[in-house]
């Protein structure tokens, strides 16, 4: 896979003046491939949101380098090129919608880029269709549900035709149904349109659907790999007070009791299937 984002030994502290302040990012190195779906997980204050804001130059590393499609994020001249390539969706859907009508909000990014009106119209319609919100284009955002608002926010980024979307806990403030809607939309963008996705989350159930899971702890990367690999290291995750998906946890405990169950189970269906087989064998 072609490398798209390259993070090289990045250290970052919020207060650059204070030499003694601690680093929010503590030597992070990571490479993200084009079209990949990466989930970054970790508990509060582990630096995952800080990392997200580095990917489109909102924050600049204190030391170390980040390259997006070969452009250094420190390069002031190309700031807008980077922001055009990497869109960021934030946690609170209410706070990222600028205009009072859905389609006008989606157009906001394109308008800033100086795209001609006819072209914006096409892009806005496509973006709204991509997140399945086209029927709501004339609605006012404050009449929509959380999941719908978050999809509008994603459409607003999509209309700018980015190559990568970073989502910083996009589902944290949503109910289960809204979470489903948003995750479905995100996955569709990744699979159908080949957009690179970096999903920051603390829901392990969302992380298991990614191509790769990156576990962060105290500003560094604890471990990374395919979801089955990462979540099979239950002891290590527990030691760092990190969650595992419920199904994995159940299998882990049953294994602890001596049942013959396979490792690397991530979702409810597989879990039920494995337990069923185990019982049948007895």
């Amino acid at each position: 896979m072609e490398e798209y984002i390259k993070i090289e030994n990045v250290y970052f502290r919020y207060d650059e003046e204070d030499e003694n302040s601690s680093f929010a990012l503590n030597g992070v190195s990571l490479s993200i491939g084009r079209g990949e779906f990466v989930a970054v997980v970790g508990h509060n204050g582990c630096g995952k949101s800080t990392l997200a804001k580095h990917l489109n130059s909102l924050y600049i590393p204190t030391t170390g380098e980040i390259y997006v499609d070969g452009i250094n994020t420190k390069d002031d001249e190309r700031l807008f090129d980077i922001r055009k390539k990497v869109g960021l969706v934030l946690q609170n859907p209410d706070n990222q919608i600028v205009a009072g009508i859905v389609e006008e909000d989606v157009a906001f990014g394109c308008e800033n880029l100086g795209i001609p009106p006819e072209e914006i119209r096409i892009r806005v319609d496509n973006a709204l269709k991509a997140v399945d919100m086209y029927d709501y284009r004339m609605h006012s955002p404050d009449k929509l549900s959380g999941g719908q608002k978050q999809r509008v926010a994603i459409a607003g980024i999509m209309a700018m035709e980015p190559e990568c979307i970073v989502l910083d806990e996009p589902t944290a403030m949503l109910d289960p149904q809204g979470r489903d809607e948003v995750m479905r939309a995100v996955k569709a963008l990744n699979k159908k349109m080949g957009i690179t996705i970096v999903l920051i989350t603390h829901y392990m159930e969302e992380a298991v659907t990614a191509d790769r899971v990156v576990m962060m702890d105290s500003g560094g990367i604890l471990l990374q790999g395919r979801p089955e690999e990462v979540f099979s290291k239950v002891e290590l995750l527990k030691k760092h007070r990190l969650d595992v998906p419920q199904a994995t946890e159940l299998i882990y405990r049953l294994r602890g009791c001596g049942f013959d169950l396979p490792e690397g189970i991530l979702n409810e269906e597989d879990c039920a299937e494995a337990i069923y087989r185990c019982i049948k064998k007895r």
Binding site: N112, L113, V124
Partner: peptide, 24 residues
């Protein structure tokens, strides 16, 4: 909210209305 909104606007390349076009 204002802080969040400013971040979101920056993410969408808002630069104070220079060379801005309109959809409608």
């Amino acid at each position: 909210r204002a802080g969040d909104l400013a971040t979101a606007m920056e993410c969408r390349c808002y630069n104070g209305g220079k060379n801005r076009t309109r959809m409608k």
